[in-house]
Amino acid sequence: MKTKIATLLLSGVCLVSFPVYAQEQQSIESIVDAAIASGDTEALDAISKYAGDPRIAAKIEAYKAYVAAKEAAALAEKNEAGFFANWEGSGELGAFQSGGNTTSVGVTAGIALTKESERWRFKFRALADYQRTNSTTVREQGVVSLEPNYKFSDRFYGYGLAQYERDRFQGFSSRYTLSGGLGYQVIKSDAMQLDVKAGPAWRKTNFVGGGSDSSVAALAAANYALKISPAITFNQDLSAYIQSGNNSYNSLSALNAKLSDKLTARLSYQIDHETNPPLGLKKTDTLSRATLIFGF
């Protein structure tokens, strides 16, 4: 009799617990589907570790294999693409206020492009500031640069740099720079990044008043990015050219507010300092910009 009673009780427990178990598994599977839809691989790893259901684990592994294959195909496409393919970047347009050798308000426009493969990264930058008042140009400044990087590892890379500058109000009608050296990503995370690089450089400067100068310099630069919130980031770029007769220092601080997926508002402040500018010109120029950045 006792055996029959125990059997009946066990059967009752199973009948009650099976629907509960089935409901829990359905709930876990719905969470897995939501994580797959959002691409949350960290959540999927945690579920796979503790779920204890081979069917759910197999579903997660199948999705991870699909993602890995997709990433491998995208990387292969980048590696095989020609130089003019797969560039990504943004355009910048806005206004500025300057102080130092000139005090004025004008327009600024620029473009920033990046192309990346498994071993190579290319960065192209162009930025121009211009104002014309009463048929007189009161500010004319521009810089164009191309920087290829060869990645020795995830953080360590070699760089090259070709750059053209024009800033008549700092005393030069054109300045050309060629440089090459080594760089390292000191900090690399979703919230913060810090890159440093250094190497020799050759510079040729053509002065507004006539004459030119060519010299070998040492280049050191740092680029810092901090993600303050999902919509706000802070950037700080520093560079220094140390050479005989005149050193050049540049600082660019920027606060970026993301307005949409493709639109960002930026406030920036730039300082350019020449230790030995042409006679009659101030050593330091500053430039405040308010711009909109369009991603593409």
Rank of each mutant, 00 (worst) to 15 (best):
T7Y: 14
L8T: 15
S11M: 11
G12P: 05
G12I: 03
V16S: 10
S17W: 09
S17H: 06
P19Q: 01
Y21Q: 11
Q26C: 10
E29R: 11
V32D: 00
D33E: 04
D33M: 01
A34C: 01
A35I: 02
A37H: 04
T41G: 08
E42D: 15
D45W: 06
D45P: 05
P54N: 04
R55M: 08
A57W: 04
I60L: 02
E61M: 09
Y63M: 02
V67R: 09
A69D: 13
A69I: 02
K70V: 05
E71A: 01
A74W: 03
L75P: 05
E77V: 06
N79H: 02
N79Q: 00
N79C: 00
E80A: 14
A81L: 06
N86V: 00
G89P: 05
S90A: 14
G91E: 05
E92Y: 03
A95G: 12
F96I: 05
S98E: 05
G99V: 10
G99L: 14
T103V: 14
T103D: 14
T108L: 13
G110W: 09
G110S: 12
I111K: 09
E116W: 02
W120A: 08
R121P: 07
R121D: 07
R125S: 14
A126P: 12
L127R: 15
N134E: 08
N134V: 05
S135D: 14
T136Y: 11
V138D: 13
R139Y: 13
V144M: 09
V144E: 00
L146R: 03
L146V: 13
L146I: 13
E147K: 12
E147R: 14
P148K: 00
N149P: 06
D154Q: 15
Y159Q: 00
G160Q: 00
L161N: 00
Y164V: 08
F169A: 13
F172S: 12
S173V: 15
S174V: 15
Y176E: 15
Y176N: 15
T177C: 09
T177Y: 09
L178T: 08
G180K: 00
G180Q: 01
L182S: 09
Y184E: 03
Q185Y: 04
I187F: 02
K188H: 04
Q193L: 05
Q193C: 06
K197F: 05
V208M: 07
G209R: 11
G211H: 03
S214A: 10
A218H: 06
A220L: 12
A220F: 09
A222S: 09
A225M: 15
K227S: 15
S229E: 03
A231E: 14
I232H: 11
T233D: 15
S239N: 09
S239D: 12
I242E: 09
N246F: 04
N246L: 05
N247E: 05
S253W: 12
A254P: 10
A254Q: 13
N256I: 10
K258D: 13
L259R: 02
K262H: 12
L263N: 01
L267E: 06
H273M: 08
H273R: 11
T275A: 00
P277N: 04
L279D: 15
G280L: 04
L281C: 01
K282H: 07
T286N: 14
L287F: 08
L287C: 07
A290E: 00
T291G: 07
L292I: 07
I293C: 10
I293W: 11
G295C: 04
F296T: 08
